[in-house]
């Protein structure tokens, strides 16, 4: 435990939790403007969350505690990742837990919880969405893992903080072929995992075309609010990880107030820039047919594999 770690452990989850709706709002606004609409504004997700939180809680027939606990577990896993991974500060709050393998596995655990929640309703849409989500997850997780392992091989450790510090010490490593391949693979895996276009369309109204929307169909009121909040936070967490693994500059390395402030601002700017890029890309690509999604993910897995090989041979 160190001062910087404690500050990071408090600031990171609060910042990511509070900022997640803003990120979703920015994504929506950028997309609306590019499509020639005015949009609902960047604060729309906050208003929606407030509305949902005020509604009554509902238990669909035949569901069990698995259905009720799933949103909370999704939120809890994301919060743990926000505490331990290096977002604002390069020294994590809980050193031995900031392992990339643990972080990826925690994110997957949250997704699995939501899949089980969707299955627990016993409905057609729930099973459909859950099945699709699990298939995507089974392919996206290996890609995430192998892509980050490519960076770990170079840094000689699977600890995320060590990887980030190694990149800070030797900035030129970022432009190596292994890193670039890993970055490309990570982007695809993150887009698939968070359900953005071209894998899934968050703005679609037809449930049958959706992956995430179908699995979450029975959630309403505060439960849905927690699912939305946690999903937004997952996107923020993954974009933040992507940013800090490849462009860690600005991250606080000391506990000085200025350094921490710079770290916060840097993180917000990085996540927002990546978010805007995702939104812009979404306007220009169409959603893939579901049967093509595994091909896309298989491609990104191959990229990740090449990244590991490159970091072995070209080091």
């Amino acid at each position: 435990m160190n001062v910087l770690g404690i500050i990071a452990g408090v600031v990171q989850p609060v910042l990511l939790l509070a900022g997640a709706p803003l990120l979703i709002g920015v994504l929506g606004s950028v997309r609306a403007r590019l499509e020639g609409r005015i949009g609902a504004g960047v604060t729309a997700p906050y208003r929606e969350l407030r509305k949902l939180f005020a509604k009554e809680q509902i238990d669909p027939g035949g569901t069990s505690e698995v259905f009720r606990l799933a949103p909370l577990l999704l939120l809890a896993t994301t919060v743990v990742v926000a505490v331990v991974a290096p977002f604002v500060a390069s020294r994590p709050a809980i050193g031995p837990a900031a392992d990339l393998f643990a972080v990826v596995a925690l994110l997957v655990l949250g997704a699995v919880a939501l899949v089980l929640g969707g299955l627990d309703t016993g409905t057609a849409y729930g099973a459909l969405g859950a099945g699709r989500r699990l298939t995507i997850l089974a392919l996206a997780e290996p890609t995430l893992l192998v892509a980050i392992l490519a960076l770990a091989t170079r840094a000689g450790s699977t600890n995320l903080a060590t990887i980030v510090t190694a990149t800070l010490d030797e900035p030129l490593r970022v432009v190596s072929p292994g890193s670039l391949l890993a970055a490309a693979a990570l982007v695809v895996a993150i887009i698939a995992e968070t359900g953005r276009r071209p894998v899934d369309d968050p703005a679609s109204l037809a449930e049958a075309t959706m992956v995430h929307g179908a699995a979450e169909l029975e959630y309403a009121g505060p439960d849905l609010a927690i699912v939305r909040l946690a999903s937004g936070m997952r996107l923020a967490v993954m974009l933040g990880l992507l940013a800090n693994l490849f462009v860690p500059w600005g991250i606080a390395t000391s506990a000085a107030p200025v350094a921490v402030l710079v770290g916060v601002v840097a993180l917000v700017v990085k996540i927002l820039v990546l978010g805007v890029l995702v939104a812009v890309a979404e306007v220009f690509v169409a959603r893939l047919r579901l049967v093509r999604v595994p091909e896309l993910l298989a491609g990104s897995f191959v990229l990740a594999l090449l990244a590991v090989s490159a970091s072995f041979f070209l080091a």
Partner: peptide, 26 residues
């Protein structure tokens, strides 16, 4: 490494599916 990562993802899918379909739902 790739095989280990793939097997982790596939194990999640296989066992999560078995639990969700066999024990949850109706």
């Amino acid at each position: 490494l790739a095989a280990v990562a793939l097997s982790v993802g596939l194990a999640v899918a296989a066992l999560g599916r078995a639990f969700g379909i066999g024990f949850l739902a109706r």
